[in-house]
Design a protein around this nucleic acid. Sequence first.
DNA 1: CGACCATTTGATATGGATCAAGCGATGTGG
DNA 2: CCACATCGCTTGATCCATATCAAATGGTCG
Lengths: 229, 229
Amino acid sequence: MLIKTPIRTISHRHPGTQPRHARLADAAMQASAIELMGACMSFAANAEIYGENEPADYLYKVVSGTVRTYKVLVDGRRQIEAFHLRGDIFGFETGDEHAFSAEAITDCKITVIKRSAVMALAARDIDVARQMWALTARELQRVQEHSLVLIKSAEERVAGFLLEMAQRLASAGAVELPMSRQDIADYLGLTIETVSRTLTHLESEAAIEVPKRRRILLRNRSALRRLNA
Amino acid sequence: MLIKTPIRTISHRHPGTQPRHARLADAAMQASAIELMGACMSFAANAEIYGENEPADYLYKVVSGTVRTYKVLVDGRRQIEAFHLRGDIFGFETGDEHAFSAEAITDCKITVIKRSAVMALAARDIDVARQMWALTARELQRVQEHSLVLIKSAEERVAGFLLEMAQRLASAGAVELPMSRQDIADYLGLTIETVSRTLTHLESEAAIEVPKRRRILLRNRSALRRLNA
DNA sequence: CGACCATTTGATATGGATCAAGCGATGTGG
DNA sequence: CCACATCGCTTGATCCATATCAAATGGTCG
C-alpha cells in the first residue's frame, strides 16, 4: 500500500493581508458577511496556498479554479482530503494549525479572510457564529460521506466520484475534470493505474465516455448510481 | 468486499422527553449548559437508540456504557462511524434527519436533550452557539482522522485502533474493550478474520498481550505507534 | 452437561498494488 | 515543419494483502 507521489512545492506565500472591516448588513444571507471582508489573491497552478502545521490564521474562499487539501503520511503516501471548487470555503481547522496542506490545482483566485476577524465577529454576532457552525457541520457531512467511499470497491469509488463531480460542477452533458488522474487516485485511496483501468472498464460498459482525458460524459447515470451502492 | 453483518434491532424507543429549562450559570465550562437540560435514559445492550433517517430531534450524551453509530449500505455492509464512550456527545447531525443509526453496545445510561431547546438557547446565548460549533469541529477532526485510517494496511489500522482506545479509555495497563471483534472490523473497514489474525500477529510480536478476549495489554506502544505510520 | 455464539485458525481466491512497457498529446529545438 | 523529448495516462503481467469459505476451539449460559 505504498504510493509515492512526488510532491510539488512551488511556494507562493500570502502576506499578512489586513482585511477592511466588514459591514454586517446582510448576515443572514449565505456567507455574506464573510465574503465582504476578504482580500482576493491569485495562485498559479500547483502553487502552495498553505502547508500542514502552519498557523491557521486565515479562511479561504474559492472565487475561481480548484484547490486540493491533502496530507502526506510519513511513508510518502498522499491522501487528498477534499477538492474545493468555486464557491467553497476551506481552511477552517479545529485547532490553530492547519491539519492539511492546500494547493491550487489550476490557476486560482481566492478570497483570503483573517480568521481572528471572523472569530471577533462571531463573538458579537450570533448569526455569524451560526453560519460558521453550519459551514463546519456541512464539512463534517462531506467528510463522513467521503469516509464511506473509502470502504467500497474501486469501481464503486470511481463511479461515486464521477457522480459527485457531475453534481458539484453542475455540468450539463460533460464533466470537465480540473484534476489529474493522480489527484483522483489520492482522493479515492487507489492507485493511478486502478483509476485508469476502472475508467476504461466503465467506458467499455457504456456507462461513461471519455472523449478527452479530462472530459467525461456520463452516459448511464443509473448504472453509476447502482455501482455507487 | 461483501460483509454480511446480521443486524440486531431490539427496538427501544425513547418518548418525547420534555427537558426542564436549563440554567446558564456556567456556560463556559465543558458542555455544562447542555448537560443540565437533559433527561437520563437507560438502554440495554444492543438496543437501538435511533435509526437512520429518523428525525434528529435530540442530542445524546453518554453517561455510562458505549454506543456505536453506523450506517448499513444497500448490500448489507455495515460501516461503524464512531464509538461513543462515557462523556461523548453524539447525534448532532447536519440535517434534521439522522444520517446514521445508533445502538447501545453495552448497557448504557444516556442523557437525552431536545435539540430545539439547544438551538433556542444557542440563538440567544453566544457561548452555547460557540460550544456547539466547537463540538461539531471536534467531531469533524475525529472523522478526518478516521478517514485517514481507512487508507492504511490492516496492521496499521488495528494498531491505530488500539492506541485510540487506550487513550480514550484512559486505561492504566490493560484496555478493556467494550465492543466485539465484528464491531472493530466494521469500524476499521476490515473483516473479523483479519482483525483476529492481526491481533494474533501483534501478540506474537510481543507488541500486545490478550489475556482475555476483550482485554488487551499494550506491551510495546512505540512499536504500535511505528505501525500507526 | 450440552448448546450456542464469538472468536480463532486454516486453505484458497481475488481485487487491486506493483513493476514494466507502450502510447498519444504537447512542447522544443533544429 | 518535422524529429525528438517529455509528461500524463493507459495497458499488460505478476504479486500480495486481505476477503472468502470452511472448520476447529473455547467461553458462556441455560
